[in-house]
Structures are given as structure tokens and as C-alpha cells.
Nucleic acid binder design. Sequence first.
DNA 1: ATGAAAGCGCTAACAT
DNA 2: ATGTTAGCGCTTTCAT
Lengths: 323, 323
Amino acid sequence: MTVSNVINDHPHVKRETRDRVLVAMARLDYRINVAARNLRTGRTGTIGLAVPEIDRPYYGQLAAAIVDAAAKHKLNVAIEQTGATRERELSALALSRNRLYDGLILSTVGLGPADTELLRVDYPVVILGERIFDGPVDHVAMPNVDGARAATAHLIDRGCRRVAALDLGDDEQPGDVSVSSLRHSGYRQALTEAGLPYDPALVINLQQFTMEGGAEAASRLAASGQRFDGLFCVTDTVAMGALRAFATLGIRVPQDVKVIGYDNVSESAFLVPSLSSIDPDHGLMARTAVQLLVERIQHGVAGRAVCEVVGGFRLVERESTAL
Amino acid sequence: MTVSNVINDHPHVKRETRDRVLVAMARLDYRINVAARNLRTGRTGTIGLAVPEIDRPYYGQLAAAIVDAAAKHKLNVAIEQTGATRERELSALALSRNRLYDGLILSTVGLGPADTELLRVDYPVVILGERIFDGPVDHVAMPNVDGARAATAHLIDRGCRRVAALDLGDDEQPGDVSVSSLRHSGYRQALTEAGLPYDPALVINLQQFTMEGGAEAASRLAASGQRFDGLFCVTDTVAMGALRAFATLGIRVPQDVKVIGYDNVSESAFLVPSLSSIDPDHGLMARTAVQLLVERIQHGVAGRAVCEVVGGFRLVERESTAL
DNA sequence: ATGAAAGCGCTAACAT
DNA sequence: ATGTTAGCGCTTTCAT
């Protein structure tokens, strides 16, 4: 017991006793058994992070920020890949429920508003991303609508009059709060505010939010014969694919078309041309998500009212939208 | 006990009994307590993955592959960021020693040959990367020398006669087996084999293996006044920075300089110009590393002789080295 | 300031 | 096929 007190830095241990214990520990090459401690305390010291795919720049950079933020609370981070499927997002939830993790940060993409009730669980969860509003758990959201509006307004401000978009358009159910539909509505708002018409022919539906998807959609846009002088892309990764496709097609950026993305991943500054983007401050989002989770872990799941945090953003102007 | 047998799919449970147990479990919303199982079995079902930074494309893509490979063995993956420092690589080792993980895949960058003995631990470890040869643990290595030689030979084959390199040069201790020095020696070998002189003025030392580092080093190379018509970069990420710097400086790729990288990260195919690279087959490396670790976990750390696996590679030709 | 007792929830080994 | 016993290594509680 005194050994336990020494290990956990409890007071009421005589200096000399502590030293004797420490010497013995060193001599025996003693290692604490984390599993036994977990069983006894009910805590694991690990939080789960479920993201669609860790090899996408956006999630990689988010994960790095979360690992750092968690380390400040002495928490480890276990990463789960959900492949953006509803099923595997639910299975990530189940793992936490098994007390493998003290809490879970879940980047929702597959879960929809219909799944709200499934999130009503008795252990700490923070949603990072969209698709579920007014759910039963804390939520750290990006300024999707405002950011997309600012991005589109920036294109218009730079003289674009036929602004296209690569996203999922209005393809989804009403009431949809996916990242794509939120950003899409920001795009539409900016057009309206500038007195420009919304032309569905300028909205190209992506197959996936990847570089491949962006390149393919941009090629379809160019092949459609529609005139366009600006392009809003739902993510920087998609924009990267679009820039590549335009280069192949001989479409010059920014001379022929100005392009802007969303996320401001670190690659964007190094593209040719460098990519203008909306920077939602990943670091702050990560710190906030971890902070909210830690509060739930420490004060119980019902410790305070559910809260919803929406971050700010910054418009980063680069070559792809230069005059 | 019968409940335990049902949970673990043991045989010798009557069908009817099993069903009764399952019904009761559902009714009580029973969740297995992983911590208790861990304590009893001595396994956690989680392996650790320690990489310098998860937000670098190379490590992100490696991590994704490892998470997938581990999932096939029903293992979770916890990610540790070491920041490429020796100290934090050692601390990742310590965490596993505390039985937090069943084993550890360690991407060494900071640990050197002098630390070989520190790896002589009594739990499963696989080294993924370089810097420690003939160590006491299994090792999955890349074909650094051969790959770099093939990359450089490709530049020469494309007509380059003054081939520069961005890496750490010969700056390090003799006997160094860092990724950089291995690739550097491949670069030199290719020059020698082609009968070209090795010119230290064409080797620019990187501050860091990042896009920023690559851009800065490429600018220094251009500013040095040295003529060069080819550039071997120690990683694709560094090459991405170099391509960006050349664009800023008005140096055309591939007309003025041909550029090749190493790693074949997925971004490389989408750059403008797209980047030629050496593809070391991350998926295979990841599967091999997990396989080796699982064997150690299942059959004990001393189950078989230490083994060293070096993967193959593929030269991927893209626009940056076109004629 | 130190220690004795109890038990977290599971499963290996051993009856029955 | 099912049940009993014991104990993994720690920490909370309660003596001393």
C-alpha cells in the first residue's frame, strides 16, 4: 500500500520510506500493470479518436492536434478508421462502451440525424464534424456555412461571375446537415447576396471527397461546355484534384479560373499555384474537443448541459485566386 | 463461467443454454469489461504505433495501412507521436513496457545505433524504418540504397549530367544508418556507376524533412549559382517543397531541372508537375510489420530468431522527369 | 505514516 | 455441458 502511495505521489509518505521504495522498484525493474489499475479505477487513460481515414491530410492534421492536446491531459489516443461508413462509426462507439477508452471523439460523416438516439450513451462522447445537430452529446463544429460563403464571396470579389462548385449539391435529403450541404448553402448564399443567379449546371457532384474525386469532377465540369470563371471546392483535397485536372486540360489558374478550397491543409501553401482556402483553426478545434471530453470524463457524463461550439475561420488568399 | 464460454465462442455450450445467455445479456445491456479481461489474460488487444508525426503524408499513409492490417488480427492501434526525438521514442517504448500495449511498432528516427541495447526489452517490438541495424528486434526496412540509386539513375538516364540532392549529405557520424545517409549513398552509387563526378556543392543539407525544409533547401541550391539539371529529393514531401520553390523562382520542371522523390505518397500523382518517385509498397511493409509483431505476441518474444525484412520498390515515372 | 482487508470482473484449471 | 475455485495487481476504505 505504501508502494502504491509512492507511485501515485500521495502525501503522508515519509521521505526515507519513499526512497527505500524507489530503490527497491529500480532494483526489481518494477513496472506498473496498467490493466490492473484500469480494472480498479475504471479508467484507461486512453481516449478513442474515430475518423474516416487517417491518411487524408485533413484528418491527419486533426489527429496530430488531438494527440498533442490529449497529451497535455496525460491521455493516450487510439485511432479508429471508420471509412466514413455509418456502420463502422457505430462500431467505434461500441468499443468505447466496452470501457476500452475513457471517452470518444467521433468525426461523424456516415451517421445521420436519424441516428441521434444511438448517441445517447452513458459514456463521454464528443462529436467533431457535422451531420448531427442538437444531438445528445457535445459537439465541436466548423463554421461551414459562413466559411463557404466567405470563400465564394472572395471569388466574386475577385471578379468571378460564373462560380462553379464541386460538392454533393442538393442531392441529399432535406434537413441534411452534412459538411457538403452546409458548405453548399454557404456557396448559394454568397451568390444570392451578390445578386448572381444559382445555376445547377455549375454544381458538379463529387463521387468522393478525394483528390481523385476532385480531378474527375473538375474534368466533367470542363467537359460540360459550361462557361465558368470561379470554382469553390468543398475541401482542399478536392481542390488539389481539380487543380491537377485543370493543368492537364490546359486551363490556367487563376487566369482562366480562380479556385478556392476549404480546410487550409498544410499542403495548400505548397501547391502550384498555391491554393486559397478557408482556415478553420484545427488546433483550437482539437483543444476544444479534448477539453470537453475531459470535463465529461472527470465530472461524469451528466455533469453539465450539452454544449455546441462553432469555431471561427480565416480567409487565406493565395495564388489560385490572385487577380 | 458458461457466460464466459458463450462470450468467447467456446465449444461445449449447449445451443439452448447459449441462447438463454445471449437473451439475458441483451436484456441487461451487458458489456464486457475489457480491463478485467486484460488483467486476467495479460493481453490488451491493442498495439502501439510510434511515428514522428502523424500529419506527414508518409506516416499518415503508413498508419492507415497498419490500422487496416492490425484490424485483420482484431487488434486496435494506438498512435504515439514522437516528434522524431530520441527521448520520446524511448518513452513510447516505456508505455508498452507498462503493458499498455501488446506490442509496439516503432518508426525510428531519433534512436541511433548507440541505443541498440535499449531495445533489448522483454515484450514484442518491431522497428519500421532505419537507424538500427542488427538490433535485438525484428526490423522491416525499406530498400533505401537501391531505391535512391534507381531514382538517381533514372535522372541520369533522362539526360541529367549535374544531379543535385536534397538530404543530410555526409553531415553525420560514420556508420550512420539514417534514412538520409542510406539514400545519400544510393545517390552517390548511381553517380559513380554512370561515371559522373560526386560534387559536394550539389548536395544541400536539409533543416528538416518537410515541405518548408525542401523549399528552403531548393532556394539555397538555386541561389548557390551551381548549374544543375536534375534533383534527387530524400522524400516526396521534400520534393513537394522543392517544386514549389522552383515555381516561385521561374525554374521550369522538367525542362530546366528534372526532379524525383522517394515514398510515392498519394499526393505526388496530383502535383503540377506530377512527381516521379520510388514506391516502396507501404501496404506490404505494414502487413509485414504487423505479421511479425503478431508472431511475437502469440509465440513469445523469444519464439524465433530476430529477422530483418527489406521490401522491394518500383520506379514511378511522372511529368517531373519527362523528357 | 503505514498497513490489512476486500474486491474490481474476468477466465484458466479443475471438478462434477 | 456446466459449475466451483482461485487469483490476475491494483487501489479504496478503514484500522492502527
